[in-house]
Amino acid sequence: MRNAVLGALALIALPSTANAAAFMNGGFETGPAIGAQGFTTLANGSTAITGWTVTGDSIDYVGSYWQAGEGSRSIDLSGTGPGGIMQTFDTIAGVTYNVRFLLAGNPDGGPTTKVLSTVASGNLPQVNSFNINNTTRSNMGWTPFTYSFVAGASTTTLAFTSGTQTAFGPALDGVSVTAVPEPATWAMMLIGFGAVGASMRRKRVQGRAHA
């Protein structure tokens, strides 16, 4: 039990040693200035959105052009063509993580069904789709989705990619990454089990003393 408690305390300590590479800016609120048109196109390799790198062709960094899923910024994962974004952050090998995000679609043009691929390094991708029927720029119809992965190393790269081969792609916002359960929760559970075990041992010793 002592080893289990020490392991739990180690789990608490691990994330705090790597805060510089913690997952960040899942709402895309920190990024470059947006022009009067309400969005800015960012090309492959751009790191202008804090924490993220643009992949594929390009993306649109969207401000007032349409209703954000949360806050005031969001992403069209197809800029002038299908693109994507990725971020590398600290994880604990063997731990399961849930990625939660909001998905919508650019309502300005086809296809009607927008396709998004989500993948974490070392894991299988997940494909989700969004139908833009009955949506508008002022009513985007943001829908929550969850993607789960098991970290295989001390860092993981999470990538979102447009599967829509036009300039009117899937829209993304509100990304969060959470350990399942969080390391601190595991630690408290193990410490609690240790306390229960110690209490039971004391009762057994007291019972023998009264016998």
Rank of each mutant, 00 (worst) to 15 (best):
Pro144Lys: 11
Ala93Met: 04
Ala209Pro: 01
Thr55Ile: 03
Ala195His: 08
Val99Asp: 12
Thr166Phe: 07
Gly109Arg: 01
Thr135Pro: 10
Gly174Pro: 05
Gly45Lys: 02
Ala151Ile: 06
Tyr65Glu: 10
Ala159Phe: 04
Ala104Asn: 02
Tyr147Lys: 11
Met140Asn: 06
Gln165Ile: 06
Gly71Ile: 01
Lys203His: 14
Thr40Ala: 07
Trp66Gly: 00
Thr53Tyr: 00
Ala211Met: 11
Gly63Asn: 04
Thr135Gln: 15
Ala10Cys: 09
Ser162Cys: 05
Tyr61Pro: 00
Arg201Ser: 09
Thr143Lys: 13
Gly63Pro: 05
Trp186Ala: 14
Thr161His: 03
Ala13Tyr: 10
Ala120Trp: 06
Ala21Met: 11
Leu77Arg: 01
Gly141Cys: 03
Leu102Pro: 05
Met188His: 05
Asn128Ser: 14
Asn123Pro: 03
Gly71Lys: 00
Gly81Asp: 07
Gly174Ala: 15
Arg100Phe: 05
Phe89Glu: 09
Arg100His: 10
Pro15Val: 09
Ala22Leu: 07
Trp142Arg: 03
Pro111Lys: 03
Met200Thr: 12
Phe145Gly: 02
Ser129Glu: 15
Ala167Trp: 06
Ser138Lys: 11
Thr91Asp: 08
Gly71Gln: 00
Ala68Ser: 14
Tyr97Glu: 14
Met140Ala: 10
Phe160Asp: 04
Ser16Gly: 07
Thr80Tyr: 10
Pro183Met: 08
Ala36Lys: 14
Thr80Leu: 11
Ala179Ser: 12
Ser74Tyr: 00
Arg73Asp: 04
Gly45Asn: 01
Thr135Glu: 14
Thr41Asp: 08
Leu77Lys: 01
Gly51Asn: 13
Thr80Asp: 12
Ser121Asp: 15
Ala21Leu: 09
Ile75Val: 08
Val127Phe: 07
Ala187Cys: 08
Pro82Glu: 03
Pro144Phe: 08
Gly79Ala: 00
Trp142Phe: 08
Val5Ser: 14
Thr161Ala: 12
Asp76Val: 00
Pro183Tyr: 07
Arg137Thr: 10
Asn44Tyr: 05
Thr91Asn: 10
Gly109Tyr: 00
Ala171Lys: 03
Gly45His: 00
Thr88Leu: 11
Thr136Glu: 11
Thr41Leu: 06
Val119Thr: 15
Tyr97Phe: 12
Thr96Arg: 10
Ser78Ala: 15
Trp52Lys: 05
Asn25Ser: 06
Thr50Gly: 08
Thr156Asn: 13
Ala195Val: 13
Gln126Lys: 14
Asn44Gln: 11
Gly141His: 04
Met200Pro: 02
Ile59Arg: 02
Arg100Asn: 15
Asn106Leu: 04
Gly81Trp: 01
Ile34Pro: 01
Met188Ile: 09
Ala209Gly: 04
Ser117Arg: 14
Gly174Leu: 04
Leu77Phe: 04
Thr185Ile: 15
Thr40Asp: 01
Gly192Ala: 11
Arg202Cys: 09
Ala184Ile: 06
Thr155Met: 13
Ala43Pro: 00
Thr30Ala: 11
Gly45Leu: 00
Val95Cys: 09
Val62Phe: 00
Asn25Cys: 03
Gly26Asp: 05
Glu29Arg: 03
Leu190Ile: 13
Ala184Asn: 08
Gln206Gly: 13
Val150Lys: 08
Thr96Gln: 12
Phe145Thr: 05
Leu103Val: 06
Ala184Gly: 07
Asp57Glu: 09
Thr155His: 10
Thr185Gly: 09
